[in-house]
Design a protein around this nucleic acid. Structure first.
Lengths: 127, 127
DNA sequence: ATACTGCGCAATCACATGGTTGCAAATTTT
DNA sequence: AAAATTTGCAACCATGTGATTGCGCAGTAT
Protein backbone atom coordinates (compact mmCIF):
# COMPACT_ATOMS: atom_id res chain seq x y z
CA UNK A 1 0.00 0.00 0.00
CA UNK A 2 1.30 3.41 -0.99
CA UNK A 3 1.09 6.20 1.51
CA UNK A 4 -1.86 8.52 1.05
CA UNK A 5 -0.06 11.82 0.77
CA UNK A 6 2.24 10.65 -2.01
CA UNK A 7 -0.74 9.41 -4.05
CA UNK A 8 -2.70 12.60 -3.53
CA UNK A 9 0.29 14.57 -4.69
CA UNK A 10 0.54 12.47 -7.84
CA UNK A 11 -3.15 12.86 -8.60
CA UNK A 12 -3.11 16.60 -7.99
CA UNK A 13 -0.08 17.03 -10.23
CA UNK A 14 -1.44 15.14 -13.18
CA UNK A 15 -5.10 16.13 -13.28
CA UNK A 16 -5.39 18.65 -16.10
CA UNK A 17 -8.08 20.28 -18.18
CA UNK A 18 -9.51 19.20 -21.52
CA UNK A 19 -8.56 20.59 -24.92
CA UNK A 20 -4.95 19.65 -24.57
CA UNK A 21 -2.46 17.87 -26.78
CA UNK A 22 -3.60 14.53 -25.45
CA UNK A 23 -7.07 15.08 -26.82
CA UNK A 24 -5.51 16.28 -30.06
CA UNK A 25 -3.70 13.00 -30.65
CA UNK A 26 -6.55 10.81 -29.40
CA UNK A 27 -8.11 10.57 -32.88
CA UNK A 28 -6.27 8.59 -35.58
CA UNK A 29 -7.30 11.07 -38.28
CA UNK A 30 -5.86 13.92 -36.25
CA UNK A 31 -2.64 12.00 -35.70
CA UNK A 32 -2.39 11.52 -39.46
CA UNK A 33 -3.04 15.23 -40.02
CA UNK A 34 -0.27 16.08 -37.56
CA UNK A 35 2.09 13.79 -39.45
CA UNK A 36 1.08 15.41 -42.73
CA UNK A 37 1.67 18.92 -41.46
CA UNK A 38 4.95 17.88 -39.87
CA UNK A 39 6.29 17.75 -43.42
CA UNK A 40 4.85 21.11 -44.42
CA UNK A 41 1.92 23.51 -44.06
CA UNK A 42 -1.17 22.74 -46.14
CA UNK A 43 -4.63 24.10 -46.86
CA UNK A 44 -7.78 22.31 -45.62
CA UNK A 45 -8.72 21.20 -49.14
CA UNK A 46 -5.27 19.78 -49.77
CA UNK A 47 -5.38 17.90 -46.47
CA UNK A 48 -8.87 16.57 -47.11
CA UNK A 49 -7.89 15.01 -50.44
CA UNK A 50 -5.80 12.48 -48.51
CA UNK A 51 -8.71 11.22 -46.44
CA UNK A 52 -11.94 9.44 -47.14
CA UNK A 53 -13.90 11.82 -44.96
CA UNK A 54 -15.37 15.01 -46.35
CA UNK A 55 -13.69 18.40 -46.34
CA UNK A 56 -15.98 19.58 -43.54
CA UNK A 57 -15.13 16.59 -41.35
CA UNK A 58 -11.44 17.33 -41.81
CA UNK A 59 -12.14 20.98 -41.15
CA UNK A 60 -13.66 20.11 -37.79
CA UNK A 61 -10.53 18.18 -36.90
CA UNK A 62 -8.50 21.22 -37.89
CA UNK A 63 -10.67 23.30 -35.56
CA UNK A 64 -10.02 20.93 -32.67
CA UNK A 65 -6.30 20.87 -33.41
CA UNK A 66 -6.27 24.66 -33.53
CA UNK A 67 -8.14 24.86 -30.20
CA UNK A 68 -5.53 22.52 -28.76
CA UNK A 69 -2.93 24.95 -30.14
CA UNK A 70 -1.32 22.16 -32.08
CA UNK A 71 -2.03 24.00 -35.35
CA UNK A 72 -1.83 27.65 -36.24
CA UNK A 73 -3.90 28.96 -39.17
CA UNK A 74 -2.30 31.54 -41.41
CA UNK A 75 -4.56 33.33 -43.89
CA UNK A 76 -3.14 34.03 -47.33
CA UNK A 77 -5.79 35.56 -49.53
CA UNK A 78 -8.71 33.14 -49.61
CA UNK A 79 -6.51 30.25 -48.65
CA UNK A 80 -5.61 29.27 -45.11
CA UNK A 81 -2.36 27.47 -44.50
CA UNK A 82 -2.33 25.37 -41.37
CA UNK A 83 1.08 25.28 -39.74
CA UNK A 84 2.15 22.81 -37.11
CA UNK A 85 3.08 24.14 -33.70
CA UNK A 86 5.78 21.60 -32.95
CA UNK A 87 6.34 23.12 -29.52
CA UNK A 88 3.02 21.73 -28.30
CA UNK A 89 4.19 18.21 -29.06
CA UNK A 90 6.72 18.61 -26.28
CA UNK A 91 3.88 18.45 -23.76
CA UNK A 92 3.48 14.79 -24.63
CA UNK A 93 7.17 14.20 -24.38
CA UNK A 94 7.23 15.95 -21.01
CA UNK A 95 4.40 13.83 -19.63
CA UNK A 96 6.00 10.68 -20.95
CA UNK A 97 9.27 11.65 -19.31
CA UNK A 98 7.56 12.25 -15.97
CA UNK A 99 5.88 8.89 -16.27
CA UNK A 100 9.11 7.10 -17.07
CA UNK A 101 10.85 8.72 -14.11
CA UNK A 102 8.02 7.77 -11.78
CA UNK A 103 8.07 4.24 -13.10
CA UNK A 104 11.83 3.90 -12.87
CA UNK A 105 11.85 5.15 -9.29
CA UNK A 106 8.90 3.09 -8.11
CA UNK A 107 11.04 0.85 -5.92
CA UNK A 108 12.94 3.69 -4.31
CA UNK A 109 9.64 5.47 -3.71
CA UNK A 110 8.34 2.41 -1.95
CA UNK A 111 11.51 2.38 0.10
CA UNK A 112 10.87 5.99 1.03
CA UNK A 113 7.37 5.18 2.14
CA UNK A 114 8.48 2.15 4.09
CA UNK A 115 11.25 4.11 5.73
CA UNK A 116 8.77 6.78 6.75
CA UNK A 117 6.43 4.15 8.13
CA UNK A 118 9.26 2.58 10.08
CA UNK A 119 10.34 5.91 11.52
CA UNK A 120 6.81 6.64 12.67
CA UNK A 121 6.05 3.17 13.95
CA UNK A 122 5.12 4.46 17.39
CA UNK A 123 2.73 7.12 16.18
CA UNK A 124 -0.71 6.71 14.58
CA UNK A 125 -0.24 4.45 11.59
CA UNK A 126 -1.94 6.53 8.89
CA UNK A 127 0.86 9.09 8.43
CA UNK B 1 2.91 21.56 -52.18
CA UNK B 2 3.89 18.06 -51.10
CA UNK B 3 3.77 15.28 -53.65
CA UNK B 4 0.69 13.09 -53.50
CA UNK B 5 2.33 9.73 -53.05
CA UNK B 6 4.38 10.78 -50.05
CA UNK B 7 1.31 12.18 -48.33
CA UNK B 8 -0.77 9.10 -49.02
CA UNK B 9 1.99 6.97 -47.57
CA UNK B 10 2.04 9.06 -44.43
CA UNK B 11 -1.73 8.91 -44.01
CA UNK B 12 -1.84 5.16 -44.61
CA UNK B 13 0.93 4.55 -42.11
CA UNK B 14 -0.54 6.55 -39.28
CA UNK B 15 -4.25 5.77 -39.51
CA UNK B 16 -4.90 3.31 -36.71
CA UNK B 17 -7.86 1.86 -34.88
CA UNK B 18 -9.54 3.01 -31.68
CA UNK B 19 -8.99 1.56 -28.23
CA UNK B 20 -5.31 2.25 -28.27
CA UNK B 21 -2.92 3.92 -25.85
CA UNK B 22 -3.76 7.31 -27.29
CA UNK B 23 -7.35 6.97 -26.22
CA UNK B 24 -6.16 5.68 -22.86
CA UNK B 25 -4.21 8.85 -22.10
CA UNK B 26 -6.79 11.21 -23.59
CA UNK B 27 -8.61 11.56 -20.28
CA UNK B 28 -6.91 13.44 -17.41
CA UNK B 29 -8.32 11.04 -14.82
CA UNK B 30 -6.89 8.10 -16.73
CA UNK B 31 -3.51 9.81 -16.98
CA UNK B 32 -3.57 10.28 -13.22
CA UNK B 33 -4.50 6.62 -12.73
CA UNK B 34 -1.59 5.59 -14.93
CA UNK B 35 0.74 7.74 -12.85
CA UNK B 36 -0.65 6.19 -9.66
CA UNK B 37 -0.18 2.66 -10.87
CA UNK B 38 3.28 3.47 -12.16
CA UNK B 39 4.32 3.52 -8.52
CA UNK B 40 2.58 0.27 -7.67
CA UNK B 41 -0.45 -1.94 -8.26
CA UNK B 42 -3.66 -0.97 -6.47
CA UNK B 43 -7.25 -2.11 -6.07
CA UNK B 44 -10.17 -0.14 -7.59
CA UNK B 45 -11.34 1.06 -4.18
CA UNK B 46 -7.87 2.23 -3.22
CA UNK B 47 -7.57 4.11 -6.51
CA UNK B 48 -11.03 5.66 -6.20
CA UNK B 49 -10.28 7.18 -2.80
CA UNK B 50 -7.83 9.53 -4.50
CA UNK B 51 -10.46 10.99 -6.82
CA UNK B 52 -13.61 12.99 -6.39
CA UNK B 53 -15.52 10.74 -8.77
CA UNK B 54 -17.34 7.66 -7.54
CA UNK B 55 -15.90 4.17 -7.40
CA UNK B 56 -17.96 3.14 -10.42
CA UNK B 57 -16.71 6.04 -12.50
CA UNK B 58 -13.13 5.08 -11.70
CA UNK B 59 -14.02 1.46 -12.42
CA UNK B 60 -15.14 2.40 -15.92
CA UNK B 61 -11.85 4.15 -16.49
CA UNK B 62 -10.11 0.98 -15.34
CA UNK B 63 -12.18 -0.96 -17.86
CA UNK B 64 -11.12 1.35 -20.67
CA UNK B 65 -7.49 1.17 -19.60
CA UNK B 66 -7.72 -2.62 -19.49
CA UNK B 67 -9.28 -2.71 -22.97
CA UNK B 68 -6.42 -0.55 -24.20
CA UNK B 69 -4.11 -3.12 -22.58
CA UNK B 70 -2.52 -0.44 -20.47
CA UNK B 71 -3.63 -2.21 -17.30
CA UNK B 72 -3.75 -5.86 -16.37
CA UNK B 73 -6.14 -7.03 -13.66
CA UNK B 74 -4.94 -9.69 -11.27
CA UNK B 75 -7.49 -11.34 -9.04
CA UNK B 76 -6.45 -12.13 -5.47
CA UNK B 77 -9.36 -13.46 -3.48
CA UNK B 78 -12.10 -10.88 -3.72
CA UNK B 79 -9.63 -8.13 -4.46
CA UNK B 80 -8.37 -7.20 -7.89
CA UNK B 81 -4.98 -5.63 -8.22
CA UNK B 82 -4.54 -3.54 -11.32
CA UNK B 83 -1.01 -3.67 -12.66
CA UNK B 84 0.44 -1.27 -15.16
CA UNK B 85 1.59 -2.68 -18.48
CA UNK B 86 4.48 -0.30 -19.00
CA UNK B 87 5.25 -1.85 -22.38
CA UNK B 88 2.13 -0.26 -23.89
CA UNK B 89 3.45 3.18 -23.02
CA UNK B 90 6.17 2.62 -25.56
CA UNK B 91 3.59 2.95 -28.33
CA UNK B 92 3.34 6.63 -27.48
CA UNK B 93 7.08 6.97 -27.42
CA UNK B 94 7.31 5.22 -30.77
CA UNK B 95 4.74 7.51 -32.39
CA UNK B 96 6.43 10.56 -30.92
CA UNK B 97 9.75 9.37 -32.28
CA UNK B 98 8.32 8.87 -35.77
CA UNK B 99 6.83 12.33 -35.60
CA UNK B 100 10.08 13.91 -34.51
CA UNK B 101 11.96 12.19 -37.31
CA UNK B 102 9.41 13.29 -39.88
CA UNK B 103 9.56 16.82 -38.55
CA UNK B 104 13.33 16.95 -38.45
CA UNK B 105 13.61 15.70 -42.03
CA UNK B 106 10.89 17.91 -43.45
CA UNK B 107 13.30 20.03 -45.47
CA UNK B 108 15.17 17.12 -46.97
CA UNK B 109 11.85 15.49 -47.84
CA UNK B 110 10.83 18.62 -49.68
CA UNK B 111 14.12 18.51 -51.53
CA UNK B 112 13.42 14.93 -52.53
CA UNK B 113 10.04 15.88 -53.86
CA UNK B 114 11.38 18.86 -55.75
CA UNK B 115 14.16 16.78 -57.25
CA UNK B 116 11.65 14.21 -58.39
CA UNK B 117 9.49 16.91 -59.91
CA UNK B 118 12.47 18.38 -61.72
CA UNK B 119 13.52 15.01 -63.11
CA UNK B 120 10.04 14.39 -64.43
CA UNK B 121 9.44 17.88 -65.76
CA UNK B 122 8.69 16.62 -69.27
CA UNK B 123 6.12 14.05 -68.20
CA UNK B 124 2.63 14.60 -66.76
CA UNK B 125 3.03 16.82 -63.72
CA UNK B 126 1.07 14.78 -61.17
CA UNK B 127 3.75 12.14 -60.54
C1' DA C 1 -25.26 -19.35 8.64
C1' DT C 2 -25.20 -14.52 8.38
C1' DA C 3 -23.54 -10.41 7.79
C1' DC C 4 -20.12 -7.48 5.43
C1' DT C 5 -16.95 -6.11 1.75
C1' DG C 6 -14.98 -5.59 -2.90
C1' DC C 7 -16.19 -5.48 -7.27
C1' DG C 8 -18.37 -5.82 -11.89
C1' DC C 9 -22.53 -5.08 -14.60
C1' DA C 10 -26.84 -3.00 -16.43
C1' DA C 11 -29.69 1.09 -16.93
C1' DT C 12 -29.90 5.72 -17.36
C1' DC C 13 -28.60 10.51 -18.33
C1' DA C 14 -26.24 14.73 -20.05
C1' DC C 15 -22.97 15.97 -22.99
C1' DA C 16 -19.02 15.51 -26.35
C1' DT C 17 -17.62 13.84 -30.76
C1' DG C 18 -17.38 12.69 -35.59
C1' DG C 19 -19.85 12.92 -39.51
C1' DT C 20 -23.09 14.90 -43.09
C1' DT C 21 -25.56 18.64 -45.78
C1' DG C 22 -26.46 23.32 -46.84
C1' DC C 23 -25.15 27.94 -47.05
C1' DA C 24 -22.98 32.44 -46.80
C1' DA C 25 -18.69 35.31 -46.88
C1' DA C 26 -14.44 36.45 -48.89
C1' DT C 27 -11.14 36.19 -52.56
C1' DT C 28 -9.68 35.05 -57.18
C1' DT C 29 -10.51 34.44 -61.99
C1' DT C 30 -12.71 35.57 -66.32
C1' DA D 1 -19.65 42.62 -62.98
C1' DA D 2 -20.21 37.66 -62.91
C1' DA D 3 -18.68 33.10 -62.11
C1' DA D 4 -15.87 30.03 -59.64
C1' DT D 5 -13.07 28.70 -55.66
C1' DT D 6 -11.81 28.31 -50.78
C1' DT D 7 -13.35 28.26 -46.54
C1' DG D 8 -15.88 28.67 -42.04
C1' DC D 9 -20.24 28.18 -39.75
C1' DA D 10 -24.86 26.40 -38.34
C1' DA D 11 -28.04 22.67 -38.08
C1' DC D 12 -28.64 18.10 -37.60
C1' DC D 13 -27.91 13.11 -36.55
C1' DA D 14 -25.83 8.79 -34.69
C1' DT D 15 -22.75 7.25 -31.61
C1' DG D 16 -19.31 7.49 -27.82
C1' DT D 17 -18.08 9.07 -23.25
C1' DG D 18 -18.09 10.18 -18.37
C1' DA D 19 -20.81 9.97 -14.50
C1' DT D 20 -24.50 8.27 -11.38
C1' DT D 21 -27.61 4.86 -9.16
C1' DG D 22 -28.98 0.35 -8.15
C1' DC D 23 -28.08 -4.33 -7.96
C1' DG D 24 -26.07 -8.97 -7.79
C1' DC D 25 -22.27 -12.07 -7.13
C1' DA D 26 -18.24 -13.89 -5.08
C1' DG D 27 -15.16 -13.91 -1.28
C1' DT D 28 -14.27 -12.88 3.85
C1' DA D 29 -15.25 -12.18 8.57
C1' DT D 30 -18.14 -12.96 12.75
Amino acid sequence: MIAQYICNQIVANFMETRRDVFQAIADPTRRAIIMLLAVGAMTPNAIATHFDSSRQAVSKHLLVLTECEVLKPQQQGREIHYHLNAEKMKDIEKWLEEFKQLFAQRFSQLDTVLALLKAKKNESGSI
